[in-house]
Amino acid sequence: MKNLFISFFTLGASLVLNAQDKLMVNYESRMEVDADAMMKQFSANSTSNVDVKQFEKAILESMTRPTYYHLRIDQNESVFQQEERIQNEQPKEPGGVLVVMYGGGTGILYKNLQEQQSLRSQDAFSKSFLVRDELKKYDWKISKESKEILGYEVRKAEAIIDSTSSIVAWYAPKLPYKNGPAEYQGLPGLILELEVSRLMDDSPEKTIFLAESISVDKNQEPIKKPTKGQ
């Protein structure tokens, strides 16, 4: 029904959505790590002559520095991509070390929920690659716990990935897009916050995505699959 409009008014947040509307969602992502465990592991494996303590601190600061992404979605397709922001940071202490780390999220991730397929465009070793895969399916356990994000009521869901990894997601039932950041989806509402916990070499770490803004995408161009790469 092309003329069907759905209005959402929840705790001060409102979007008037047409069934065919696309959304643009901006996320901040950050890591939380066990600093003591990470520093201990680094010190044990380090063979460098640099000031180990200073280098450890620089790595920790770099790992926990926030990164930013945008997710463009419709009811069936999405493109998730890191935003490029200029880093003008300097060492916090005179003569200190500044380490800039780049994760694997600098490519483009396309998802098609109807076909249950993903396509990732990624640059590595001076080459461009396209990696096709099936969408991961998560055995979500939905709880009655709720809170508010950006004025929307969100509900909690949890899933186990494997023996060392788990997910906590907060999704908005009144934003009926069964999608979310990165490779996560499959809930009855848009995921506005996501926490992925992992145990890496006995050192716990978390990757967190939190929606900063949601808007109707005024770009009328259809969502397109990435084509760059082998």
Results as ranks from 00 to 15, higher is better:
N88P: 07
D74E: 03
S62W: 06
L60P: 07
Y68N: 00
D139V: 00
A124K: 13
V100A: 10
M101Q: 08
M101F: 15
V131T: 12
G103N: 04
D51M: 01
G96C: 01
Y110H: 08
Q116R: 14
F55G: 00
G105S: 10
R72S: 09
T64P: 00
G96S: 07
G105T: 14
D133S: 08
R85Q: 06
F80M: 04
D133W: 08
Q114S: 11
G95L: 02
S126F: 14
R85Y: 06
K144L: 09
M63G: 00
H70Y: 12
F125G: 04
L130E: 00
I73N: 06
R72N: 08
D133R: 07
L71W: 15
I142H: 07
G105W: 03
E61T: 04
Y110N: 02
K144H: 06
E93R: 15
Q75A: 05
Q114Y: 08
F80N: 06
Q75P: 00
E61Q: 05
Y102T: 09
K57V: 05
E83W: 00
Y68F: 15
E77V: 06
S126K: 13
K137I: 06
L71D: 09
T106P: 00
T67F: 03
T64F: 01
D123Y: 12
K57Q: 08
N76F: 10
M101C: 01
G96W: 00
R72I: 11
S62F: 06
P91Q: 09
D139S: 09
K127M: 11
D74L: 10
E84I: 13
V131I: 11
S118T: 04
M63T: 08
E61R: 13
S78N: 08
K137S: 13
Q75W: 03
S126N: 15
V97L: 15
S143C: 02
R132D: 06
E93D: 03
I108S: 14
E83M: 10
S118H: 09
N76L: 14
F55L: 09
A58K: 02
R72T: 06
K144A: 09
S78R: 02
Q87W: 02
R120Q: 15
I86C: 00
N88T: 03
M101V: 10
I142L: 11
F129W: 08
E89W: 07
H70L: 07
R65M: 03
K144C: 01
K111R: 13
K111H: 10
K136R: 10
L109V: 05
N76H: 15
E84Y: 15
G95N: 03
L109R: 07
N76M: 12
